[in-house]
């Protein structure tokens, strides 16, 4: 049953991607997926996020569509936080992406 559901979900995603590609819509808008931009190792911008799961001195975990992003480092600061984007500054040492897409 689960296998059938997964297969169906995969087909649905493939169809969505094809439509987004055909209509030339930005993928992060059309597919509800995050857009992550990193400048060097000191600034990271996550657009289209779903909120913060975990935040401490050395780690920030952010919920995204179908998974989460984990940023590790030191002196991490959430420079700006809004529903559209999240700007993280500090010494970024690692980036871990866990997504079901």
């Amino acid at each position: 049953m689960d296998k059938k559901k997964n297969a169906l979900a995969k087909k649905r995603n493939a169809l969505r991607r094809a439509m987004v590609s055909a209509l030339e819509i930005p993928a992060e808008v059309g597919l509800d997926i995050p857009k992550i931009t990193m400048t060097g190792n000191y600034c990271l911008v996550v657009e289209n996020h779903k909120g913060i799961i975990d935040y401490d001195l050395h780690r920030i975990r952010i919920k995204i569509g179908g998974g989460w992003v984990e940023i590790t480092g030191s002196g991490l600061m959430l420079q700006t936080m809004s529903r559209e984007e999240l700007v993280i500054e500090g010494e970024i040492k690692g980036l871990n992406l866990e997504t079901g897409l």
């Binding site: 909120g51 913060i52 991490l76 959430l78 936080m81 809004s82």
Partner: peptide, 20 residues
Amino acid sequence: VEKFLNLVMQEQMEISEICW
């Protein structure tokens, strides 16, 4: 703290320079 920040975000309030 995370819940606090998420609620602030949901209320569409501006919050910035968040650090420990």
